[in-house]
Amino acid sequence: MIRMLMRGGGAVVWAVLALVAATGLFLLKYEVQALETELAGIEQANERHREAIHVLRAEWSYMNQPGRLQTLASDHLDLVPVSPERVTVIDALPFRPRASAEPQRTEPPARPPRVLNPGEADAIPVPGRKPTIVADMGRR
């Protein structure tokens, strides 16, 4: 009885297997197709993005025209070109004076820088006797 079932069931098993394989194969095919479509879409998007990047790079260069930046900076910022006396290197800066055990020499009181023609907008400060008023204020 069992033997006969097996003999007959063999075909059934094979048929079921074939069915499963075919179904699997078709499912796989649809999956592959979906992935292919997705890949094509990504490739197209890549191409579009590459083109966009190319155009944006040109636009970046256009927006960064030095003349345009100069106009914008002078209109909206309080920046001026660096003058030579404002440029230096770290090595050229003096070290902070070492604190000595000796009592500090009494220094004359700090005076604000003398200003010529006070009240005028373009007054030129002349170095006073003690120009380091800011440092003194910090010590106090």
Binding site: P81, V82, P84, E85, V87, T88, V89, A92
Partner: peptide, 16 residues
């Protein structure tokens, strides 16, 4: 005066 800071030329201290 315009291009020296751009080109990274250091101004000399004694001249200043």
């Amino acid at each position: 005066a315009r291009i020296a800071p751009l080109l990274g030329v250091m101004p000399s201290l004694e001249a200043m």
